[in-house]
């Protein structure tokens, strides 16, 4: 009897290790039970997360009533500056469009920076401290695909890691870990020094609550207080999304490159609304899509002949 129990335990152990190893890392096609369970649970979760957040927000509002006057003052100054900048922006945009026209930009080049922001509600957050994923109420039906970047008005939250038909899962930047086998690093640069500065946001330090930016060149002009944004040189991620502020910079482990600590700009707990950034198709992807459509069209014609 005892032997049989031990045997079953070992079989169970092997089975679960196999499942864990198999499910680790990127999987594009999720099985239908996963999709079904996820969307069903997501449907129930959305009835709870937002109302709870609404009531919590009410108490928060009462507590922060005193700060509203100050905030109003600051916003008014910001608005004045905004109105001034809008003028300059409109002029530059017109100028830019005229120049693009002159230089014969292709359609894909022109629309390269026209990001589409898809609004999404948060429907729940994982309670597990080693796997703090966030679930959103948009999925592949709304045009969400893997690796799309998720932001709030403050800054970068994370990227979409799993997509289901009616919901999706976000891996927040607090899960970044340079040593882990399945997590990406985010190419980053400094706002205002885009052409000279470059590095990778690689690891989140849970003890200090800061992000580690690595592989910064020695002669890089990055310094304390700079605002770090996602880089234009990345192909997957959109560029210009605020990540955080540089807190300190030091020589890296091997002395060849520098590293910097970055304080994240966005608050990552108790989120209610986020934006999913949809990057327009690049030129090669557009060409591929066209070829695919043509292939389908000719394939449909062929049997008729």
């Amino acid at each position: 009897m005892g032997n049989k129990r031990l045997f079953l335990l070992l079989i169970g152990l092997i089975l679960f290790i196999a499942i864990m190893g198999f499910s680790l890392g990127e999987r594009r096609n999720l099985t239908w039970p996963e999709r079904f369970v996820n969307d069903t649970v997501a449907y129930v979760q959305q009835w709870f997360y937002r109302p709870a957040g609404y009531f919590a927000g009410l108490f928060e509002d009462v507590r922060t009533m005193g700060q509203i006057y100050d905030e109003n003052e600051r916003l008014r100054t910001a608005l004045a500056a905004y109105a001034r900048d809008k003028n300059a922006y409109d002029r530059m945009k017109l100028e830019n469009e005229r120049l693009m026209e002159r230089l014969d930009f292709t359609e894909a080049q022109k629309t390269k920076n026209d990001y589409e922001y898809i609004f999404a509600h948060v429907i729940s957050a994982s309670p597990d401290p080693y796997n703090r994923t966030i679930k959103l109420d948009v999925g592949s039906k709304q045009g969400i695909t893997e690796n799309m970047v998720v932001t709030t008005v403050d800054g970068l939250v994370g990227y979409i890691s799993r997509v289901y038909p009616l919901s999706s899962t976000v891996t927040p930047i607090t899960e970044l870990n340079g040593q882990a086998p399945d997590v990406k690093s985010i190419p980053a640069t400094v706002d205002g020094k885009e052409s000279e500065s470059y590095g990778f946001i690689e690891t989140y330090n849970r003890e200090t609550g800061q992000l580690l930016m690595t592989r910064i060149a020695e002669n890089d002009p990055l310094e304390e207080g700079d605002i770090v944004i996602t880089s234009e040189l990345a192909t997957v991620f959109p560029h210009g999304i605020v990540i955080g502020e540089v807190v300190s910079r030091q020589v890296g482990d091997f002395g060849l490159t520098h590293t910097a600590y970055i304080e994240p700009a966005a608050q990552l707990d108790k989120l209610t609304d986020v934006f999913v950034v949809k990057v327009p198709l690049s030129q090669t992807e557009l060409a591929e899509e066209l070829a695919e459509q043509e292939g389908e069209a000719s394939g449909a014609e062929a049997p008729g002949q």
Binding site: M20, V37, S126, Y130, S161, T171
Partner: peptide
Amino acid sequence: LQDVVFYGHLIGVHAFTMGL
């Protein structure tokens, strides 16, 4: 259920440990 719904890195961690 927890592993599948909050699928981030792995599936099976909670199922195995909670069952055991």
